[in-house]
Write a protein that binds this DNA or RNA. Structure first.
Lengths: 213, 213
DNA sequence: TAGATTGTTAATCGATTAACAATC
DNA sequence: TAGATTGTTAATCGATTAACAATC
């Protein structure tokens, strides 16, 4: 799947480079929102606290997107990055866990705005199962994960469940064909190498910062 | 402030090493919860998907915490890491933004359990200001940030506001003496070098993973 | 003692940066 | 043309890994 934009540059792109592309993309949205049409590696670098050389080097893994003496056309670069990151169509997403966090995630407009649509919600609490969230979403029991996720062809899951049940649910998600998990549970998940996981644990980030306080 | 645990090892500890300590600590909590008393760099490595050499190297920046042939006493290592990360006492925290996410964060028991206590909440919506969250917390207007944060001696803030107001609120927080910001707003914040920021933007993580799908 | 695992060294690997020719 | 900025190379910098003596 990397062939199309990688034909001339066939070495593997480092993960750390890929991880910065969404950051660049986010800056392009903001710059476009400010009415700008052109930017430069210097301007992006200043905003992001990186070096301009790093930005140019990162982008060079995927092609040539700028013009010497001018910089980058914001809309063009945005489209290229979206293409590289496979953001062409809407990605259906499954949410597991409808506690306070799950509730906030379902109502976060940012997901839909950026092409991620929560199309299935699961919880294990009997009094929540069957609850209608909106015109198209009804909370299903976690026992329905495999069936429902497969039927809907969902590849991305958001895990917003307590620590204790996270490993078990993870196994079920993988059985269901999930290939990417955004993990809000405060634990490292064990998954096959073809499944991607990104962890969001606010405690980990806070404890990182307190080191410097 | 690094003198006490760094006396013998006076080179700077790389940020990337510090960023893994909370992950190690989290594993120690889980291992302790399973009733284990001893672990090893191998066991931790297997659980975290890292190499055992990396874990030993990371820990060696701060001292010698294990026994040859045996491994690490879980409680002892936990206490040492907590000390290194300045987790001895309760850290008061300010929350800015009481939308769905702010609501979820205030009710997340994990913060208090790990020594982070939200002691001030701010919002700019007139109908939210004055609302009592619990026996000790009342939502204050954002115009009170400077006064209230200073009075309470708060050094850590959680930013859960919309993109548009994030830069302005950030400036106010810095004026108020905040030194660490957990940023949920979807933008890179510009702060002085003595202020730490950690960013949590789920879109960034999702877009990272879609590259590989 | 035999087996196991640490802490550390040196080598390897990989990422960032500086610099500049190309060129818009 | 003069000024600016890209894309890329080579050098530097830093992090990870392999290996093993020390030792519990």
């Amino acid at each position: 799947m990397t062939v199309s934009h990688n034909a001339k540059w066939n070495k593997e792109v480092p993960d750390i480079v890929v991880s910065r592309l969404p950051i660049y993309l986010r800056s392009l949205y903001i710059l476009a929102g400010e009415g700008k049409e052109i930017t430069s590696s210097q301007e992006l670098a200043a905003r992001l606290g990186l070096s301009s050389a790093q930005i140019r080097k990162d982008l060079s893994h995927f092609g040539e997107f700028g013009k010497q003496g001018t910089g980058y056309n914001i809309q063009f670069l945005r489209e290229r990055l979206e293409h590289i990151l496979n953001l062409g169509a809407v990605w259906p997403v499954a949410l597991v866990g409808f506690g306070d966090l799950g509730h906030a995630l379902v109502h976060y407009a940012g997901f839909v705005r950026k092409g991620f649509e929560i199309q299935a919600v699961f919880d294990n609490a009997p009094h929540k199962v069957g609850h209608r969230i909106n015109s198209t979403l009804i909370i299903e029991d976690v026992s329905k994960i495999k069936e429902s996720v497969r039927a809907k062809g969902i590849k991305i899951a958001i895990l917003a469940v307590p620590l204790e049940v996270a490993p078990g649910i993870t196994d079920v998600l993988i059985e269901a064909g999930i290939k990417a998990i955004l993990n809000y549970a405060p634990t490292t998940l064990t998954v096959p190498s073809n499944v991607k996981v990104q962890n969001i644990d606010p405690i980990v980030y806070l404890q990182n910062m307190t080191y410097y306080l």
